[in-house]
Design a protein around this nucleic acid. Structure first.
Lengths: 149, 149
DNA sequence: CGAAATAAGTCAACATGGCTGACATAAAAT
DNA sequence: ATTTTATGTCAGCCATGTTGACTTATTTCG
């Protein structure tokens, strides 16, 4: 039980260390990474959806999102169905940043998956899903999910 | 692959949410939790060992550790073998705090383990261990480990 | 023994990224 | 026409990370 707690601590610590080093070169932090990641995975994500995922305040998000938009990593356009919404998308530059940041993480996870084997990965997914609190968040991970968001 | 990345993000986010709320009642933050956790798990831990685990600077640790010591959650005494070392231990009050903080995490992990089953837990452990970068850190998780540190 | 290395602590200053609270604007919904 | 919703923004606070400089006590090593 307590081992599980520590596994999460150490894994997360090492999992974030490499991207953090890359982010520092851009003058960015972990918060920027999270935004770039989720906008990359879900093009046309709205601000409030992003707030719901990150569980931070509008003001906290505003700071990092503003920097990413002003520096040309993310584009914003109004929704057509609801013109109040801002639909977020990565620019080419943003995609490149996302690739760079996720590269070490994909390598680390890929290595871990190969090392552990397919059956272990299955178990890993099961446990991690059960750790996640909300049914809504768990649904993001449904198999062969074509439907985003 | 990218799912694995997100699983770690969501699991860690939910995993830390409940203790954070408890910590706020003490005027503490996540950093205090980490110190209390590792001192609890490894009585007589030294300052430099703790620094190695947390991967933060002496100054950052000094702040939170100082608060915990001054407020009577942790005791410090000099090592007998090496009198430069400070051996850290939880007080009764510190143990109580540790129990309180770990309670929701133990519940969450316990629930996830039961939900997923023993085989899945085995796989979870395998993958998580392979995500952890350092051989030394992985050794902390050896089976039936009686030997600490 | 004396010099160098090590464990720990401290001061100061700075950055990131959380937070609250208050308020503004545009668009949609009622 | 009013209210609600989505978003943005200003100001200020706090926790926790950072670098750099320097001190003290103790151990280790030539």
């Amino acid at each position: 039980m307590r081992q599980g707690i520590e596994l999460l601590f150490f894994a997360y610590r090492d999992f974030t260390a490499e991207p953090d080093a890359i982010l520092a070169r851009y003058g960015f932090g972990r918060a920027h990474h999270r935004v770039v990641h989720f906008v990359g995975r879900h093009p046309q994500l709205t601000v409030s959806e992003l707030l719901g995922i990150l569980r931070i305040t509008k003001q906290s998000l505003g700071r990092v999102l503003g920097q990413l938009v002003r520096q040309g990593f993310i584009t914003v356009r109004s929704g057509s169905r609801d013109r109040r919404q801002r639909l977020l998308e990565l620019t080419e530059k943003g995609c490149e940043l996302e690739r760079q940041l996720s590269e070490p993480q994909r390598a680390r996870i890929g290595h871990a998956y190969r090392q552990a084997g397919a059956a272990a990965v299955e178990g890993f997914r099961k446990v991690m899903l059960a750790v996640i609190a909300g049914e809504a968040d768990r649904r993001r991970f449904e198999r062969a999910s074509g439907a985003d968001r």
